[in-house]
Design a protein around this nucleic acid. Structure first.
Lengths: 225, 225
DNA sequence: AACGCTGCTGAAGACCCGCTGAAGACCTGA
DNA sequence: TCAGGTCTTCAGCGGGTCTTCAGCAGCGTT
């Protein structure tokens, strides 16, 4: 379960990161509206915790821009208690839920889980490509009805390729999505994992769903190979 | 990855050109708003780095004119830190992102890459010319329903010609777009690749979509030949 | 008709890219 | 601490790809 916390108060942000990580979430932090927008666009999150008062670009704007871009990620807004900001307005700009500061941590977790469940039920949690099935929610993969055990990295790569089935995806992009990597990460790492992935989902079945696009990256065949 | 830097401070402009070139970008420089607008209109860039304070035509105007002309290139605005200019206004005139001066170079690079990826994903993915289909996202090409395997360079050339279907495109421009080439690159290189491209997409099908325009370059027939 | 210019193409070698096995680091749970 | 699996790094290999070159073929001009 991936969460993005957009919050400028560093202490609160870190407390949330700690607490939510302990609850089993994978947490990213953005300190301002713009970087929040960028991260939300570049990565795929289940939910976003979005403070309204942010430097630069405020929460309302982040929210409406995300919706305008067709991003239907779950958004929970944090509103200040002083009533300067209207909660109803938060919902109007496209937020799914809101919470007034100060809030109880357990309430936040409960709301997030409820939201993720709600959003999750409307998001495609399973991708079916011929007889290859990738289940993002269950983190399982089956080929021709046979369950294929994958390591975390392998699954993350397959999952990301499955979301863009039929498209060529660069190693650079895979590195950015699957790893929290800097600009100097090694594309060969991807090659190694792709190699072992093929040995599990393609070779034993005489297929070739995971195709190399020379000079461009990899592509997962939309028909499952 | 092609970048246009519109910046009047010569030292900063040259520093950016140096740094971004080292990062693998192909960089053009424009010293003022008007020439920036001209270059952006004449060439095809992935992203434009646009200073707000420019002699003649300021960044806002350049941005809104580009958008008015239907140009949806990625635009990252550089705003001065003194708050005289509103960052939000930058976004409202159609910019995709902004960065306050002074900024960190690595941050700029990261934002540019993220932006290019975002923009790229909204670009038209498939071009259909008669029974010739060029799919930029999947990096595939089919003629009369038959998949035609192409090398990276061949595909890059075909993709670029497909985006300007019906227009004559010079070898010089192809070299600039497909290669990160200097001014002393050999047009014959293009000829060789075009030759092998024809042998794959035209000759086997008795067609002639990829036409020579003597003295001007090549043209991809809008009806697929 | 001859010339020069432009574009085409086959061949060849350098080059680059991606694949893979192995080794060691790393993490995680017992 | 130890054992298991997982991840990353490294180096070598193999093969496809790119570029260069040279010769040839059109086309337009002199």
């Amino acid at each position: 379960m991936r969460v993005l916390v957009v919050e400028d108060e560093q202490r609160l942000a870190q407390a949330l990161q700690h607490g939510l990580t302990a609850e089993g979430f994978t947490v990213d932090i953005a300190p301002d509206g713009l970087s929040g927008l960028a991260k939300a666009t570049d990565h795929t999150y289940d939910v976003i915790v979005l403070d309204i008062m942010l430097p630069g670009l405020n929460g309302y704007r982040v929210c409406s821009r995300l919706r305008a871009a067709g991003n239907d990620v779950g958004i929970l807004m944090l509103t200040a208690k002083d009533g300067e900001w209207d909660e109803a307005e938060a919902l109007d700009t496209g937020a799914d839920d809101y919470l007034s500061k100060p809030f109880s941590f357990v309430v936040l977790v409960a709301r997030l889980k409820a939201l993720a469940r709600r959003i999750g039920s409307r998001a495609p949690r399973r991708t079916v490509l011929g007889d290859l099935v990738v289940d993002s929610a269950a983190r399982t993969c089956t080929r021709a009805g046979v369950a294929v055990p994958l390591t975390p990295r392998e699954f993350a790569i397959l999952d990301h390729l499955a979301r863009r089935a039929g498209e060529a995806v660069s190693k650079r992009e895979i590195l950015d999505e699957v790893w929290d990597s800097g600009p100097d990460s090694d594309p060969n790492t991807v090659e190694v994992h792709v190699s072992s992935l093929r040995r599990k989902i393609d070779t034993p079945f005489g297929r070739s769903a995971l195709q190399t696009v020379r000079g461009a990256g990899y592509r997962l065949a939309a028909d499952g190979g």
